[in-house]
Design a protein around this nucleic acid. Structure first.
Length: 575
DNA sequence: ATTAAAAGCCAC
DNA sequence: AAACGTGGCTTTTAAT
């Protein structure tokens, strides 16, 4: 059963029961939740709600306490299929880019969720035809069916859509955040919150020490990089830039207070009191996830920087009373994904380790005899996946290439394809964008008769850079696919666990008020907020979900995806 | 006055 | 180590 949700004028929604001829209902927007709730609870086979944009429809359903099991996000699916080298998209569409191309997701948290979603024509210029989700679904189905990789593409589209559900649910539930604890952290590190725009006490003290060490006047503005760099020059410090790693190499009395000043200044500006005021409300931090927002298929975020919460403030992430966190992260996800997609039995075996569990793949690589230390295994593998050409990373690459020829050849081939200007594709079928105008211009310029040395060098540099991109794309993108499947499985399993009989009433909103729910997603890590009594069951499901994700992507290929799991009341205590 | 770019640091 | 991937965000500075 695949109902398609079609917006109509005047706040009316048409629900078309695809697969059920003649079944079609027109309801007011406000009644949609009741229709969905009924179908979710009554149907033997869970419906796959099909709509233009999960962000547009799901928030209102969740606000009404209605949770959806399955969906198809046509906007996200379109983007994947349109770009995929494994799909031949019907040509007439290409001549008329419209609703489904380049459309950003509806923003979350804007306006009243009970209001009808605006029609496309109200959002974009009127000469673009109003989209037809039913027609789009048919085009997508035909395109997928005609692909030699139909199975993988179906999985990818389903996983992406489930990710969209999870993303909206995480926004709905929010990440528990104690503003009072955050304030205590800031006060401890920076001093009490100053009035207005004054510097906190600790920063002021450091500023005085820095000026003294530089013999600079009080008028020196430390927050002006240009002025500060000049002052460092006058004092003979010898800094070419203000980068931390560069300053760390210098020997001068100003370095220590300056580094601390920069660190504290960063905390103040990025995650200080102003951040709490802007992003923490009602004990929750809500940041919007942009599913597939990164070119590789990773998620991006908007508002508050959910994907870059610094370790220094994670102590403010505290579970509600009677609740706790299950924090799980996939150990060495990317090299394991590489081993699997390259069909590298040797590297997969290193990932299983000597005990068959293989919690640490880098230790397994050392045990295999390929390299001497864990650190070398790590930087070597990262170098292979990022395209490192220097340092200790490059030094161990030949040894890794000898020990694991299939994996290393796999990423090398992706890099070479990119250098040739070709498209590369992830395991499930997400393709890289073709190289842009710059690539073509530089290629053309380098081969002209009068092309100078510098034009050729520039072209070479850009070409290699694009090769590093495609090299990384296949690994990062496939890891993102694993993470999507993992997350999709987790959210389904968490729901199946049901309600905690003893859940403390709190601020967790319906439909999750007594249920474990996803609270944070970080590429290869999830944080689940759960009634304490269910924590062990949650941990088991998260582990099972990792196994399921591995099987979905790689079948019975013997690759393991071990997790490191912590149960803790505070995010800072994880790991 | 608004916008864009650059520099820098945070996360994975 | 800082010569290798993907981003978001904040501030300063330059450009329009």
């Amino acid at each position: 059963m695949q109902p398609v949700v079609v917006p109509e004028p005047d706040g009316v929604v048409r629900v078309v029961g695809v697969g059920l001829p003649g079944h079609e209902r027109r309801v007011a927007m406000g009644k949609l939740a009741a229709v969905v709730r009924e179908a979710e609870t009554a149907a033997a086979a869970r419906p796959r709600w099909t709509w233009d944009d999960t962000n547009r429809w799901y928030p209102a359903l969740l606000s009404a306490g209605v949770r959806v099991e399955r969906s198809l996000d046509l906007r996200l699916a379109h983007r994947i299929l349109r770009q995929s080298a494994l799909v031949t998209w019907p040509e007439p569409d290409a001549a008329q880019p419209g609703r489904w191309d380049g459309m950003p997701p509806a923003p979350l948290g804007a306006g009243d969720r009970d209001e009808p979603a605006p029609l496309f024509a109200d959002l974009v210029s009127a000469d673009v035809p109003e989209p037809d989700p039913v027609a789009e679904l048919q085009v997508q189905n035909a395109a997928v069916a005609a692909s030699p990789a139909a199975g993988r593409l179906r999985l990818l589209v389903a996983a992406e859509s489930a990710g969209a559900l999870a993303a909206v649910e995480m926004y709905h539930a929010g990440l528990p955040w104690r503003a009072d604890v955050h304030d205590a952290i800031l006060t401890e590190i920076l001093g009490p919150r100053p009035r207005g725009t004054e510097r906190p006490a600790r920063l002021e003290q450091l500023a005085a020490r820095i000026r003294a060490a530089l013999e600079a006047p009080d008028s020196l503005n430390l927050d002006s990089p240009g002025d500060l760099l000049k002052a460092l020059g006058y004092a003979g410090v010898g800094a070419r830039s203000l980068r931390k790693w560069e300053l760390e190499r210098l020997d001068h009395p100003v370095i220590e207070p300056l580094l601390e000043y920069k660190s504290l200044y960063r905390l103040l500006t990025a995650n200080g009191w102003g951040w709490v005021d802007a992003w923490v409300h009602g004990g929750r931090f809500r940041s919007e996830y942009i599913v597939g927002g990164v070119v590789t298929g990773r998620w991006a975020s908007r508002g508050g920087g959910a994907l870059q919460i610094p370790k220094s403030v994670r102590r403010a992430v505290v579970a509600d009373p009677g609740w706790t966190f299950v924090v799980a992260d996939a150990a060495q996800l990317e090299p394991r994904v590489l081993a699997a997609m390259a069909g590298d039995e040797t590297m997969a075996a290193a990932g299983r380790g000597t005990d068959g569990r293989g919690a640490d793949m880098y230790a397994g690589i050392v045990a295999s005899g390929a390299v001497a230390t864990r650190e070398l295994a790590k930087v070597g593998m990262l170098g292979a996946m990022y395209g490192g050409t220097t340092g200790s990373s490059a030094q161990v690459l030949p040894r890794l290439a000898k020990a694991f020829p299939r994996s290393l050849a796999f990423v090398d081939e992706a890099a070479q394809a990119g250098e040739r200007g070709e498209i590369v594709t992830t395991h499930l079928g997400r393709s890289s964008p073709p190289p842009g105008a710059t690539w073509h211009e530089l290629q053309a310029g380098a081969y002209q008769d009068d092309a100078g040395e510098s034009a050729a060098a520039k072209a070479r540099s850009y070409t290699r850079s694009w090769g590093r991109f495609t090299r990384n794309f296949v690994v990062q993108g496939t890891a993102a696919e694993w993470a999507l499947c993992w997350t999709a499985s987790i959210r389904r399993r968490l729901w199946a666990l049901g309600e905690a009989p003893d859940a403390a009433g709190g601020v967790v909103p319906e439909p999750f008020s007594a249920r474990p729910h996803l609270a944070l997603f970080l590429h290869d890590e999830v944080v689940i907020h759960t009634p304490t009594s269910m924590a062990e069951a949650v941990a088991d499901e998260v582990r099972a979900a990792a196994g399921e994700a591995g099987e979905l992507l790689f079948g019975d290929f013997p690759v393991r995806f071990p997790l490191s799991i912590t149960v803790a009341n505070c995010y800072a205590d994880a790991k």
